[in-house]
Simulated assay, not measured.
Amino acid sequence: MPQKDPCQKQACAIQKCLQANKYIESLCEDVIQAMRKCCEVHAGENSVCCSGFAKEHKATDTRTVV
Rank of each mutant, 00 (worst) to 15 (best):
A54C: 07
D30Y: 11
Q10E: 12
D61M: 13
H57D: 13
K37F: 01
M1A: 13
H57V: 10
V66T: 01
A20P: 05
I32F: 11
E40M: 07
D30C: 10
E25L: 14
V31E: 00
C50L: 14
Q33R: 12
A59T: 12
K58H: 00
P6A: 06
D5F: 07
P2K: 13
S51E: 14
C7I: 05
A34W: 06
Q15T: 07
A13K: 02
P6K: 10
K4T: 11
Q3V: 09
K55N: 04
T64D: 09
M35Y: 11
I14L: 14
I14H: 02
R63Q: 03
Q3R: 07
R63V: 00
K9S: 00
I14G: 06
A13D: 09
S51F: 08
M1E: 15
K16R: 06
L27H: 04
A11R: 06
H42V: 01
C17G: 01
K55F: 05
S51R: 15
N21A: 00
V65A: 03
R36N: 05
C39N: 15
C39A: 12
A54Q: 08
S47E: 12
A11N: 03
M35N: 14
D30M: 12
S26H: 11
D5A: 15
K16P: 10
E29H: 13
P6V: 04
A59L: 08
N21F: 04
C17V: 06
S51D: 10
A59I: 02
T62R: 06
I24K: 04
